[in-house]
Write a protein that binds this DNA or RNA. Structure first.
Length: 423
RNA sequence: GGAGAGAUGGCAGAGUGGUCUAUUGCGGCGGUCUUGAAAACCGCUGACGGGCAACCGUCCGGGGGUUCGAAUCCCUCUCUCUCCGCCA
């Protein structure tokens, strides 16, 4: 959510900033809403003040044993009008809040302008794609090994689910352990285990609700519960409605969770293989920092995610997303894309974002600053990395002519020294 | 699942219809004293919103209700604790 004060005092500048990301801000509606709210709120508070004074007089008169019926009669009309006003104001405030909750974040000045992913800017590359003759894609490799079973996934549930067996299932698990170990041992993150089901308030806090509910799996039942689309939701919400001491900052958390996404609107895209699934594992990095630190932290966070690819010796590049391609909560985002030989292109494997105070304001995540007053934190998150896609990248980049797959050296300690996955 | 007890500012903890502008303690901040510190003493110290300001309003777990007036009474939901049952 954007700062309501900024929204009110510099409406047109905000609208212009949002236009950079292709968002159309309804100025007329906003101004009309604000004019009514201001008038109604001032009037309602005046009536409340009058009522409070009247009630106090009644209390004092009763204490002295005086007759209070004249005052009670004079309060009658006030009561009715106040009731009407309060109701109208509450409706208006709900409308304002809903409007504000659907606005995306302001893009940082350094974010390149652009319409879609064609306008993203490459900032660096690492590694050299190896030349593999007639590279197979991961799905063919996995199926030939007898360890990646899409038919079984489809039978158990449906499309976009996969069953892994044997060596690949183990490699998949090893990746999780490896990533967690690197981030906790070498990058100083605290590992957390969190719920995979969250309530609506948590999703509102990180920005998935109210606007992007169709991307989520909602649970049936009495509670309004959802499967998490990313660990960013439960982990960042650890700070919801908290005021933490400045000395405890920065906070850095790493969590491994499954992620569940409905993939509504992505029909026909990445239908083959494990690239786009309804359920996938991810190791997520989350930071909460003082505002002055957040852009430096974004660089660190991105490097932490890159470190995993470097240790696995997988070629990648880093992109600065353009204004039109960023997620709604982000002020700035770097995507990391890994090389996939079968597609002869780089594909997203991590997304690292600085949300500034966008999420913190929604969830009231604050710290006590130097002046003793609560200040909003800045929150950041990034994949470190998407495990399924990392498995895909290993299969494709480490494939051998005989159909077996070499195990990256960094992972061998997690697999009892096994050097290759074979049928 | 059954029975009971709770939820009040950073923490602890009073308040059971109107002198509540929410008592008090701890913690924190400032001061006095001191070479410095500690102790002692004095003062300040919740959040959010509106207003140029004076000031006003809202908030006692969430929501709803009764009342001129609710932390306090009623309904409802959530969470926590104790005991019983079941359970990985």
């Amino acid at each position: 959510m954007l700062d309501p004060k900024l929204l009110r005092s510099q409406t047109e500048q905000v609208a212009a900033q949002l236009a950079r990301r292709g968002f159309v801000f309804d100025l007329d509606r906003f101004n009309a809403l604000e004019a009514r709210r201001k008038q109604l709120q001032t009037e309602t508070e005046r009536l409340q003040s009058e009522r409070n004074a009247g009630s106090k007089r009644i209390g004092q008169a009763k204490a002295k044993g005086e007759d209070v019926t004249p005052i009670l009669e004079s309060m009658d009309a006030l009561k009715r009008q106040l009731g009407d006003n309060e109701q109208a104001l509450a409706a208006l405030q709900t409308e304002f809040e809903d409007f504000a909750l659907r606005l995306p974040n302001l893009p940082h000045a350094s974010v390149p302008d652009g319409k879609d992913d064609n306008d993203n800017v490459e900032v660096r590359r690492w590694g050299t794609p190896s030349s593999i003759e007639n590279p197979k894609d991961h799905a063919d490799l996995g199926e030939a090994l007898g360890q990646m079973d899409f038919a079984a996934g489809a039978k158990l549930t449906g499309a976009r689910f996969t069953v892994l067996r044997g060596g690949l299932a183990r490699l998949h698990r090893a990746l999780v352990q490896f990533m967690l170990d690197v981030h906790t041992r070498e990058h100083g993150y605290e590992e957390v285990y969190v719920p995979y089901i969250v309530n609506a308030a948590s999703l509102r806090g990180t920005g998935q609700l109210p606007k992007f509910g169709e991307d989520l799996f909602a649970l049936k039942g009495e509670q309004e519960w959802f499967l998490i689309p990313t660990a960013e939701v439960p982990v960042t919400n650890l700070l919801r409605e908290e005021i933490v001491a400045a000395e405890t900052l920065p906070r850095r958390w790493v969590a491994h969770t499954p992620c569940f996404r409905s993939e509504a609107g992505s029909a026909g895209r990445d239908t083959k293989g494990m690239i786009r699934q309804h359920q996938f594992e991810k190791v997520e990095l989350v930071h909460a920092v003082e505002p002055s630190q957040s852009y430096e932290t974004l660089e660190q966070l991105t490097r932490h995610a890159e470190a995993i690819l470097q240790k696995l010796e997988l070629p990648y590049r880093v992109l600065a997303l353009c204004t039109g391609d960023m997620g709604a909560g982000a002020a700035k985002t770097y995507d990391i894309e890994v090389w996939l030989p079968s597609q002869q292109r780089y594909r997203e494997i991590s997304s690292c974002s600085n949300c500034e105070d966008f999420q913190a304001r929604r969830m009231l995540a604050r710290y006590r600053g130097a002046n003793g007053k609560p200040e909003l934190l800045h929150t950041l998150n990034g994949s470190g990395l998407a495990v399924g896609r990392t498995l895909v990248a290993i299969l494709e980049n480490y494939q051998r002519a005989d159909g077996s797959v070499e195990v990256p050296a960094a992972l061998r300690p997690y697999l009892d020294g096994v050097e290759a996955i074979t049928a």
